[in-house]
Design a binder for these strands. Sequence first.
DNA 1: TTGAAAGCGGTACCAA
DNA 2: TTGGTACCGCTTTCAA
Lengths: 339, 339
Amino acid sequence: MNKRQSVTIREVANKAGVGHNTVSLTLNDSDRVRPETKAKVMAAVRELGYVPNVAARNFRQGTVRTIGVMIPHIHNPLYWDIVAGIEDEARKHDYGIALVNTDLTPQREQDFLRGLLERRYDGLILMATHTHSVETPTEVRELLEQGSAIVAIGSTWQEIDKIEPYPLDAGPLLMEHLYSLGHRHIGFVLGIAHEGLASDRLDAYRAFTQKHDLPQIIETCGPMIPDGMAATCRLLDHPDQPTAIVTVNDYLAIAAMRVLSQRGLRIPEDISLAGFDNIPLSQYLTTSLTTIDIGGADRGRAAVQLLMDRLNNPQREPQVVKFPAILQIRESTGPLKRT
Amino acid sequence: MNKRQSVTIREVANKAGVGHNTVSLTLNDSDRVRPETKAKVMAAVRELGYVPNVAARNFRQGTVRTIGVMIPHIHNPLYWDIVAGIEDEARKHDYGIALVNTDLTPQREQDFLRGLLERRYDGLILMATHTHSVETPTEVRELLEQGSAIVAIGSTWQEIDKIEPYPLDAGPLLMEHLYSLGHRHIGFVLGIAHEGLASDRLDAYRAFTQKHDLPQIIETCGPMIPDGMAATCRLLDHPDQPTAIVTVNDYLAIAAMRVLSQRGLRIPEDISLAGFDNIPLSQYLTTSLTTIDIGGADRGRAAVQLLMDRLNNPQREPQVVKFPAILQIRESTGPLKRT
DNA sequence: TTGAAAGCGGTACCAA
DNA sequence: TTGGTACCGCTTTCAA
């Protein structure tokens, strides 16, 4: 029993006593077929339970109506948020999404990009990867040459449609907020596989601390919660005792929050905490989190729109979409407690 | 500049001075071709930058090497955990995944199922939907008749491969745990669009409370965090003041935790809290969460394996895979404080 | 307005 | 071991 034995337009045509292209026309460009004929065809379609074979049509038309989506780390809620936006917007345009999680593995990234060359999705949305911090990789260039539409979210690549990684003022905004609360010892949890991925936030931290002559207290770690917890512990044990901690994203702020609570430190009375991303969860944490909103699901929607524009107009100049950084002040940050 | 103008095996064959099927053979069944010929072909492949057209192959072979995955609610981390498992296992079998989020909308579910009929994915993995609680819907039956391989996770449908929804002892285990800690007033946050989706946990709650002659304090609500917060508030204001709260899943336990903290109630000293699912985050919440583990990402992996088995042996009897319920006792539950 | 025929880029089955 | 030919199901072109 092969699943491919399904009804074809030829069978439908037979049944209806017409040519098989008439069936095709009926099913698509409904204007050019006489209503009576159309009715006959539709009757046959129903009777036989005909279901169009999308694979055949896609093949013929050279399209798959599918967007390949690559996310770097499936457990960070930021990406679910973006994927939700992508999925939602793609559906409106009648596109599906194929999801790949690279889990920050360079090998997987490469495999995926190569696979995409073959699968020929109509478009790709790529999110922050190892290669994003350097020059456009060969695979991506090949894809572009092949005519693929590609949108990068949070990339520094040139000559490609993209959603700007982080607004340049995101980092300064957050630092300024903490500074204005009186914090002078601000620790930074840089939890990410590759510094380049968070260079904007790191640069902002460095620039700000230098400008105000503050100590730089940085702990790097992996992208998982336990990594973030370990880094937070190291930060707390640092001689320059931080009175505020910034994590490179909200996800790791959860890790920090856990550690602070374990140590009996109250937020924000004893120590302030802030992150980046404004993941949906951040406002519902036990202590709601001060963070920088950078667009969330809207970034995903915008990416799909960029992609659609590009598909409609392949010659267009590469565009960059920017979202404003919005400081979300919540419970997790407060004035420095004088000791 | 059409992206479809890419190099075909025929051009490669020309270049190499062989028949085009020889190229095909070289690229696949490499044994039947003489090494020298193979070398010639490979040289031409490289020279022309040939990239196979997967769409064409899939079409010819009647396969797409893609699994359609339907999740009911994109913001619940449980599903990401499962999707991670699916993605990981699917990759091993060289399958991709197409993701659809129904956001608990019956309309979207139906659209999706209908779309799948046309797209002809090789297999589908469907997760708890509106229709899961009732009989197998027409669309699904059609899909099965068409020969699609379908695996349901958390469904009550008959005659279909599936991962058992919740182990039957999941609910009793959790209730027993709270009972043994001395709790007699146990509230239940049933946050889900359709009761049927959580009937196992609800039934367990009802049965347990009846058996032990405890009051039934149930608040139903939507699937979002604010919904859960509102329900928790109502629960706390209930005349039968609960000393412990169970939420239908860990995701909504986050909502409950937030409310409890807002009200100044300490967990577990003042009130105990527990959920279901053991989402990865649950152990890292400010107060780590007591919950029932039901397999997490392994459920996703198992679903893919079921699917692969089915594809290899379409005639096989429907199977049910069960995972044990494991009580994870963490910080959020404790003995009843005598007042 | 409709039908016949060609072809998309591979794979499968022959025969050589 | 190789090449020729048919064919997957649909869309597209061209005549009728």
